[in-house]
Amino acid sequence: MKINKLYLGLLGFALIAPTILYPVFLMKVLCFALFACAFNLLLGFVGLLSFGHAVFLGTGGYVTGYLMMNTGITPELGILCGTAAAALLGAFYGKLSVKREGIYFAMVTLALAQLMFFVYLQAPFTGGEDGMQGVPRGELFGLIDLSDNMAMYYFVLAVFVFGFWLIHRTIHSPFGQVLKAIRENEPRAVSLGYNVNDYKWVAFIISSALAGLAGSTKTLVFQLASLTDVHWHMSGEVVLMTLVGGMGTILGPLVGAGVVVGIQNYLSGGELGNYLHIIMGAIFVICVLAFRSGIVGEINKVIKRNFSS
């Protein structure tokens, strides 16, 4: 019950936040938080490090962007199509990558993502290096004009809450328990008769679909879909967010996304902007050496209560 109070408190804060903080910044945080939560479902709860998750973010973004610009469908349908495209790609990539474990899994996902990076780089519809610019936000259900940042913010919040709820439900379902069992001891899960690869595959699809949802939403927020979202740097960033926040905790990716996006926003304005990648790399190294549980993980240790259970 206490945890529910925490969630309600956060939701309450999110509802009034745009009166205190810049809404576009908050939307960016929410999109990346959803992306990181989706990623963490694989890393934190199945123990699979996908190093190419940006491909799903970017695919969702491109498909939504293309449809919004060329067909004039409503944003919720655009997002739905982007999510479905990411899920489809995830179904194919997941089937391939769950054949390998551990380090190989990371390399396979990275290489598969790079494959799509080159496809998007060459394909005519993505706009190549320039990307898709000026994607219209459209009118939600044909009624609510999303070009207003406040309306957009509450829509993004609703999308995030839905994604977060879905992940929460997945983790606490019997299915999620099997995933955790696989993370803890895969041979034992196999010996208990679970088809481990199928479980990993389904988790992969859920994760890629939600990453696609984050990407689709992000495209609407920034009215832009570009190669940045498919680049391996982006895949690295989501790993960093999860690591900073605390992998395997439910709230970790949200906190991590807030911290990383906050640092990026702060640095890109000032003269330290040139050092952005160096600083990101340094945070990686420091986190791994001294801070492996992440922010939420450390808080859990201090108050001896586990938010993830």
Binding site: A106, Y275, I278, G281, F284, V285, C287, R292
Partner: peptide, 24 residues
């Protein structure tokens, strides 16, 4: 002695630092 995942992430961080430093 930690999970090998961490070593991988560590070397990734080092790669980012080196690439960022030379780009700068």
């Amino acid at each position: 002695n930690e999970d090998h995942l961490y070593s991988l992430l560590l070397t990734f961080g080092i790669a980012l630092i080196l690439q960022g430093a030379f780009t700068h």
